[in-house]
Computed example of a mutant assay.
Amino acid sequence: MIGVARGRVAIGVAAFALPGLTVKLMGMGGGSDAGRDYVTRMFAAREIALGAGYLLSKGPNRRLWARLGLVVDSLDTVNGLKSRGRLPLWVTAGAVGVAGGTAAVGAAKVGRDLLR
């Protein structure tokens, strides 16, 4: 989970600083688009907050941040699946793979916390 949280912060900082490049690398468009850049920065802020919240917390608060991350990653996975057919297959597969993978890591952490 610490690796996931660090990755969230890194991706968030990169996406906030370079939203056009981030979207281009994800295969979701190129060129200049102020609305897309705004939404990308909103995503970036969310990732920075989730990652930093987990890294800066301890004990029960850290468990709460893990649960919040699981909810977000689960919703991202559903969103990726809903985009199937409207985005290139490799884009959808990549998005669902990353979101689903982090949701699985989060689910394992939350499950372990609940069993303690």
Rank of each mutant, 00 (worst) to 15 (best):
P88E: 12
L21T: 07
R8Y: 08
V72H: 03
S32I: 11
G59A: 15
T77Q: 09
S57G: 12
P19A: 15
L70G: 08
V72M: 09
V9E: 08
I48C: 15
R84N: 04
G97Y: 05
A5K: 05
R84Q: 06
T92W: 15
A95V: 10
A99D: 03
R62I: 01
G106T: 08
G29E: 07
G3T: 05
G100C: 14
G106F: 07
V4S: 07
A17N: 04
L18R: 06
T102Q: 04
G94C: 08
R63Q: 02
T92G: 09
G30T: 05
L115F: 01
S74Q: 07
V71S: 13
N79E: 13
V71C: 14
D33P: 07
S74W: 04
L70Q: 04
I2M: 00
G111L: 04
A15E: 13
W90K: 09
P19E: 13
G69Q: 02
S83G: 05
A17V: 13
G30L: 01
K109Y: 01
A17D: 03
L114P: 06
N79R: 15
L25I: 05
M28G: 09
G53I: 05
A108G: 10
G7Q: 14
V78N: 10
F16C: 15
V72K: 02
A103M: 11
M26F: 14
L50I: 14
D113Y: 00
V4Y: 01
V72T: 12
G7R: 13
A34Y: 00
G97W: 05
L50M: 14
R41C: 09
P60R: 02
A10Y: 05
M28K: 06
K109M: 06
A49D: 02
T92D: 15
G29P: 00
L114G: 11
L55T: 12
L115S: 02
G69L: 08
G100H: 07
V13L: 13
F16N: 08
G29H: 03
E47R: 00
A107Q: 03
D73K: 00
R6A: 08
R36H: 01
R86W: 10
A14R: 03
D37H: 08
D37G: 07
G7A: 13
G27L: 05
A44P: 11
I48D: 10
R36T: 07
T92I: 14
L114H: 09
G31F: 00
G111N: 02
A103E: 03
V9T: 12
G69R: 01
L75M: 15
R86K: 15
A5S: 14
V39I: 15
D76G: 02
V105W: 06
T22I: 15
A99K: 05
A99Q: 04
G3L: 04
A108H: 06
G59R: 01
W65T: 02
A34E: 07
T102W: 08
K24D: 11
R86H: 15
A95M: 11
L55P: 00
G27N: 09
L64A: 12
V4C: 10
L55R: 14
D37R: 03
A45I: 10
R86D: 13
G94F: 06
A93Q: 07
L87K: 14
T40Q: 09
G29K: 04
R62M: 02
S57E: 13
A34Q: 04
K82C: 11
